[in-house]
Design a protein around this nucleic acid. Structure first.
Lengths: 195, 195
DNA sequence: TGTACATCAGTGAACGCGCGTTCACTGATGTAC
DNA sequence: TGTACATCAGTGAACGCGCGTTCACTGATGTAC
């Protein structure tokens, strides 16, 4: 039953894609290797021909998922410009759709706390991938480079918090929090340079 | 080996207190009933004389932990005023100490994503407890009531996100994010009333 | 206040279950000639 | 291009383990009189 190189590569990508959605939707501990393989139409034993263990898959999933977000924003920027692409992303971020579909959303609100308790190697991958995403978003912010990075960080942090709170709360509380965070006028933008 | 009412009440509180720290530090799934009981100096079997099941403990822990935070802020406010108490809380929130000690910190960044996937009853408890905490913090913000609530929400959301990101990242990324969020000047404060 | 008995807080063995990982096996693919 | 054999992707049973929960048991506490 050996498969061609092409088929193996497709399987590998399928495992990654299914893991990406399931981890975001059900959490890392809440998703078993068997769940992922079944979703990919395979049995659990074959998993270890693709990844050394579950942790290795988590690491690859983190990188691939952030990379996918970066690519999506950059593709949008190619037609409408970075500023518009980032504005759109931030608007989507606080949408009811994003709140309701963690499996297709940003990995930070879903996986952040689990990664906090994970081995250093995973936190290193998460930090590096997150930093790359942030650098992309920063390019769509106004002002000089330092201010861009700072305001992208604050804007994203506020949205991550809003999503975490909204998803963990009853609908009424969720609505209040989302509405407060949707209001403009606080695009932090910082005072100015810090010296 | 039956215990007096007083001893039982003490045991009950000990279980709650140990669970509060362990859940925040290791996550809900990452903490077993046995872990909690051992921490309280007991064996796992006795747990069910105090709580119907693990979920009931989680619910009680959420309420008690938020209530503890509210009490701490209000006690500080009794001597220095609400504005100062809330300012202090927000400052502590982004401190390295808070990042390093999830077991003694805000339950939102640690438990938020797990609660998202929990039964509705837990999300209802989380939402209600969170909303009460937010109402307390709002009292320390400037402006009319609606603006107070809004800016407390945004300020807290940004901090929740910052902590989630910082804890899940490598030290360098964590530092960058925390520093960006510590800068003042974006106390959102919203435009003004919304009609 | 004293007695008799019911209650029940806490113990620790046992349960069924799902997990991550291993392994012998299969047969199609890859490779060396 | 054809042949012989090594490789290895995927299968499914099996492993050891820790989990939440149950339960028979113990003996001190609570209660009824």
């Amino acid at each position: 039953m050996r498969r061609t190189r092409e088929v193996k590569a497709e399987t590998h990508n399928a495992i990654l894609a299914k893991a990406s959605r399931l981890f975001r939707e059900c959490g890392i501990e809440g998703t078993s290797v068997g769940d992922i393989m079944a979703e990919a139409g395979l049995t659990h034993g074959g998993f270890y021909r693709h990844f050394e263990n579950k942790e290795a898959l988590v690491s690859a999933m983190i990188r691939a998922t952030f990379e996918g977000i970066i690519t999506a924003v950059e593709e949008r920027a190619a037609s409408s410009g970075m500023q518009e692409a980032v504005k759109d992303y931030f608007e989507y971020y606080l949408s009811d759709e994003h709140v309701a579909n963690p499996g297709w959303g940003c990995p930070v609100p879903t996986l952040g706390s689990e990664i906090s308790r994970a081995p250093e190697a995973l936190r290193a991958e998460f930090g590096a991938s997150f930093a790359r995403s942030l650098a992309t978003l920063a390019k769509g912010m106004p002002g000089p480079e330092a201010a861009q990075r700072e305001s992208a960080t604050r804007e994203l942090a506020m949205r991550v918090g809003a999503i975490v709170i909204a998803r963990a709360s009853d609908p009424a509380t969720a609505r209040d929090v989302l509405e407060a965070c949707r209001k403009p006028g606080n695009t932090p933008q910082s005072e100015n340079g810090e010296r």
